[in-house]
Amino acid sequence: MTNNINMTIESASKLVIDCFVRNGCSPAVAKSVARVIVAAEADGCLSHGLFRVPGYVASLRSGKVSGVAQPKVRQALPGVIVVDGQGGFAPPALDEARSSLIELTRGNGIAGLALVNVHHFSALWTDLEPICAEGLCSLAFTSYLPVVAPAGGTKPLFGTNPMAFGWPRADGRPMVFDQASSVLARGEVMIAARDSHRMPEGVGIDANGNPSTDPNEILKGAMLTFGGYKGSAIALMVELLAGSLIGEQFSYQAGENDNKDGGPPRGGELIIAMNPVAIGGVGAFAHAEQLFSKITEQPGARLPADRRYANRVRATESGLSLPAEVVEQVRALMI
């Protein structure tokens, strides 16, 4: 049985911030990245929580990622902002440009933000919640390393290629879904391998292209897209949106150019924000609530993010229950 350590959100945040600073991050960068890591942990998204810290640190120690990068923001078009992350992590680059994106979206009704030359390793919902908090709906797309086979194929080509969508609500808790194009997030397979758990059928294949439920064999082979060819088409769309459209690498190119240190590859992210009131009128939010209520009135049905919000409340009240092994790994990285 795994031993757990209970920590407050504040204590976990300090641990992660101190670890990043010790490994070459500026305090501002450390705080920005720690925020998304601890937020994922609090919301029950363990595959993007403190489990990811060793990967972040590996990329800092190898020199692939700059922990002191100062992103450069430019307005490429009236409704388009481009942020060059200068080889740093994605959260500080987004922090630098978020207010400009919000301002453009309010004025134009719709605006896009291209993050380039960044290293994205976090959950996407953390990117969208602050935008939704300003009364805007938004979409986000990013690619990864080649770990997913296209439909009918047997070799890794696509990234897990997540996408997220957020819709603001009056109670301040936006409806947000965040999902990979693969059946599961890569981190979930890695955690299953660490904990010696089998995977459900249909998650991935081994290096010979045979179906497997062994996470270690799937990590050597390839993951599969959800919904077969439908998920494969979505993965392809994400490659184009987070690659060609914004002038960044495809997942397979990121794999060719990566130093294999276990940290996030260089890549890009596309965020599109929209102003529901400007486009659909003042009744846009009330109209959406009608649909949400139709969903939740059915026993057993819930809105995306509801479970995360419940986890967040528990974490705030009772703290985080962290695997002792993970905490010790983070502490060891500070030596």
Rank of each mutant, 00 (worst) to 15 (best):
D43K: 11
L241E: 06
G268H: 10
S59K: 03
V118K: 02
E41N: 05
L128C: 02
Y229R: 10
L115V: 11
A133P: 00
T142N: 05
I17T: 07
F226S: 12
I9V: 14
E248S: 14
G202W: 04
F250Q: 06
R35H: 15
G63Q: 14
L128F: 00
D127G: 03
G262R: 08
V148L: 06
K155M: 10
R35D: 15
L333H: 13
D306N: 09
M199C: 14
M7G: 08
V53W: 11
V82E: 11
N108V: 07
H287Y: 05
D95V: 01
R307G: 11
V83Q: 10
G227E: 06
S47G: 04
E297P: 01
V118R: 01
G79T: 10
F158P: 01
A192E: 13
A140F: 01
H48G: 02
V277R: 12
T126P: 05
S318W: 00
F285H: 14
T213D: 15
I5D: 05
R312S: 08
W167P: 02
C132N: 13
T225D: 07
L136Q: 04
I17Q: 06
V38R: 05
V116K: 14
D95H: 06
A242W: 01
L139Q: 13
F165C: 07
P174H: 08
G243Y: 02
D127H: 11
G267W: 02
Q253P: 00
E317G: 00
Q298P: 00
V327R: 05
V57R: 11
E328Q: 09
V277Q: 15
V327P: 00
E188A: 10
H119P: 02
S100H: 09
L139M: 14
I335W: 10
L157G: 05
G112P: 07
L320F: 07
N6L: 06
V148A: 06
Q86F: 00
V83I: 13
W167K: 12
F292W: 13
S138T: 15
N257L: 11
A254Q: 03
S66Y: 01
E129R: 14
I131E: 08
A222T: 02
S212L: 14
D178V: 03
Q298L: 05
R314V: 03
N311L: 05
N257H: 14
V238W: 07
A170N: 14
K260V: 07
A324G: 06
P130S: 10
F51N: 08
L240G: 07
Y309Q: 12
L224F: 04
L241N: 05
G63S: 14
E10R: 08
D43Y: 07
F51L: 07
E41M: 06
